[in-house]
Design a protein around this nucleic acid. Sequence first.
DNA 1: CGTGCCCCCTGTCAGC
DNA 2: TGCTGACAGGGGGCAC
Length: 296
Amino acid sequence: MPELPEAETIVRGLRRHLAGRKVAAIEILRPDLLDTPSEAFRSFLAGASFRKLARRGKNLLLHMGAARSGRRASGPDTDGRDEGFTLVINLGMSGRLLIREPGDPTPPPSHPGVRLHLDGGGELVYHDIRRFGRLAIMDPIALRAWSRTLGPEPLGPAFTVKKLRGALARSSAPIRSWLLDQRSVAGVGNIYANEALFLARVHPVTPANAMDGEGATRLYRTLRSVLRTAIRARGTTLRDYRTAEGLEGSYASRLRVYGREGSPCPRCRASILRITFGGRSAFFCPSCQRPAPSAQ
DNA sequence: CGTGCCCCCTGTCAGC
DNA sequence: TGCTGACAGGGGGCAC
């Protein structure tokens, strides 16, 4: 469900509410969501404070400051640095991370998995109907190692047309599958992959290494443009996704092909097609997005 | 190693 | 009114 724009929107909402606050108590209702043993998860978070809220691809990064308790035996740290750790959250298909301030009149989440009670009242609830989401505690070393397994941030400075072209040349996978692989580019999911390919006029089964320079350049631009526009719209709510404040994103009404099988192409009025490969649906205009000649 | 397929889980919707 | 099957933003594991 949540791709980069949805994760970014959630992070921005968290920043407005969590800066400087502390975790007062922890409830783990669904231990199967955790990639860290429950007891370790609990002891890391108890009393910890939210330091910095960030995003990597589709993942939420909650950088925490350790509790100032007597848990540490040592004096000065061996490396002289402040100990901190990160709560990394992947929302899977149906995960939500919701802020609930005291007196919130909206009904409580129906499928809570983890609840972090905040000091001074309020709570941060991880909610997930399908439970494909994952929560993990990582120290700085583990975090860096994990981050290296992901591709570049498509909206970041390291992502250039040149890099994209080089990476495309190294894979024979269909471009839609290539975009969904988080090692290629971090944060792209099925919605925005399909939308970017439509805008770039690239057929979703085109082998990545069959893309020419012009196609790659168009894809670079449309991918970034779609992601940025979707962030401004607070993401796409089809069913499960909500912002941290429980609001829906508004990009669904602007989707051009995703979920629109049988509707007219917004560019040429041809009927949008749906095909399945890689276990998921791809939507495209058979007239605007012709397969690459070399792929025949 | 890269690629493709199956599976995890719950809910919803179309069709019979 | 059921029941059944297909499908849903993701990603890990496994076979080839």
